[in-house]
Write a protein that binds this DNA or RNA. Structure first.
Lengths: 196, 196, 196, 196
DNA sequence: CATGAATGAGGCTTCATTCAT
DNA sequence: CATGAATGAAGCCTCATTCAT
């Protein structure tokens, strides 16, 4: 991926996440990236495909980093903490990507599950699910079988982050992260941990 | 609200929730409602305002019904169960409204918190928050103070419902509802209930 | 067909025939017709379809008038004279239509023979062919069987008219018509008439 | 003319004649010729001029060959047969060139008669005209004086060839050629030959 | 109240042409 | 000579909105 393409992606991510996909024109993206409109079409066949490119690119980064962090551990509880912690961390550090990846196109991602655009996102979800299952098998977690429990967890923390980020407040990102994780620990994790 | 206006709202809700706000044209709405385009403008000044109308209308129904159900009880735990149960129930019975109210415009609702359009939604959230606080004060719940805990709960169940609804499966709405509530009960509620 | 649609057709015929299909923009057509661009799309789904509309409309007029003139006669020789005379006459009176119908899109018409757009043109050609065949059967004409003889005749007079019209000269339309018919009479017709 | 330039011409002729001038992009031509877009501009200042180059190039070949064939004879009747026979023969052997030279740009050629691009085509027509005139002067042909008789003849055979070529049929090129010439012989030539 | 033809700004996309390598 | 990434003007088309009936 060369510099021009990176500029396009960066510009599009910024605008899509703040102004929205439909209210961002290709010209806006070009201007913001300081290139010509036509140039975008050298890299992406359409606005739709540019959005797809953003998905692939962003989700690849997120997935890669989370997989890396998970390598070091094998305890499901620790793994669950890591996948949530890292997701929140990445989201707060790249709010643009967060908005697009975890907020805007939930619906779309599900509807197009077989589309390669969402491969990484789907792998991310599978990863989450497998952690939960392993935790249950290992007798560390206890919760009713449910296909979409991990999606619920994603909805939980992302909704909290979204409000925290959009509501004017004096909290720093670090505080937001810590408070959210603390809440997660003392509600969901507490609820599913097996008592010893 | 006369019949014509109801037809407009019904048509717009259907289309916005399935096709999306931007991909639905005013003409589509008019055709679907079997009226003329111009007629819509007798009731709503703009497409934007029509969307606002949908919010107000839908959220009023949801809020009214939930308030009614809550009147009969005062135990915070029971109240929490009711607000979630009813929300899920209404969502599954009116998927169109659910998509718009709980999925599509999360972002928008927060950004326009002072806009009267979102009065009902905001009141709904306040209601949820107050239940949680009361539960804590009454010593029934135990969890770290967090401004957006209830938003997290909304994100939790709505993400689960969304996936359940969009993923092709053989589950009935009743099953979806029961499984989701069961999961909620055995994770979050279990996690915050005080053992005595 | 209402006034607006007529204005659109008229404007498009003029511009397509003089400037050419590709060098005429939809905005040009709208300006020339003194309407808004969008209005064109109320009547024609695309520029392509507008061209199709012109074909249908123009060829319908030509075909109708020629059929009318042919009703009064049954002698193949006279019929052949009439179909050529009338075609030339109409062409000279409506050069725009002539350019489009008999010059510009010969290629296209053949390639899309089954497309309803060219129904009238194809019927016109069939009519011409049937006259030639009847003349031969009646022993009035004598020529080698050939599927495309009538097309050859069309090419003959239309090429002559085209040059006459485009070359700067002092000839009136009446003169052009008479000279062309005279030439046709004394070359092709003379060549195929049976001497008795 | 080097190899690169020939590749450009060949590619452009193919594409212009099949897809059309406007629907062929410079990139298409470059891709088809397996060169870079920029290279075309080393040989032709613009797309327009490339088209001009095609005219000049193709018509030069046609004209040269026909002149060569005509050298051997002086009888106007034979010469007329040769110019038509050779034109048809070349057309069928190079349908691409035929489409461009004899079908597509009739209109353009006339309008730009003074443009050097069309020198060869115009010389070709002059040649045809002079044959007809000489035949008349020699008492071999008899027909009314007409500036554009030869254009009519061109329209005659080219229209027949065009239909024959585009209509799906089982005729070989040889058959098409023979049938067309036979028809020409027994209609126009028969019509203008002086009986002795 | 209701209609739907008309409007025209603005968006997405193409493509002839340039120019630094 | 050759390349092909970059340019940006211009075209087709959509659609929210208006207004005369």
């Amino acid at each position: 991926m060369n510099e021009t393409q990176k500029k396009i992606l960066k510009s599009a991510i910024t605008l899509f996440s703040t102004v929205g996909f439909f209210d961002t024109s290709m010209k806006d993206i070009a201007n913001n990236a300081k290139i010509a409109v036509g140039t975008i079409y050298l890299y992406y066949k359409s606005k739709e495909e540019l959005l797809g490119g953003i998905y692939k690119y962003s989700s690849a980064i997120v997935l890669k980093r989370i997989k890396l962090k998970l390598k070091k551990v094998s305890d499901p509880l620790e793994m669950l903490r890591i996948i949530v912690t890292e997701s929140i961390d990445l989201s707060l550090k790249n709010l643009d990507v967060f908005m697009i990846l975890f907020v805007d196109h939930k619906k779309m991602a599900i509807k197009n599950e077989n589309n390669s655009t969402f491969n990484n996102i789907n792998e991310y979800i599978k990863l989450g699910k497998s952690i939960l299952i392993k935790g249950k098998e290992d007798g560390i977690f206890d919760f009713p079988d449910h296909e979409n429990f991990f999606s619920g967890i994603m909805g939980f923390w992302s909704s909290i982050i979204l409000r925290a980020v959009l509501t004017p407040s004096k909290l720093t990102n670090k505080q937001i992260k810590e408070e959210t994780l603390n809440l997660f620990e003392n509600t969901i994790i507490k609820g599913i941990r097996c008592n010893k």
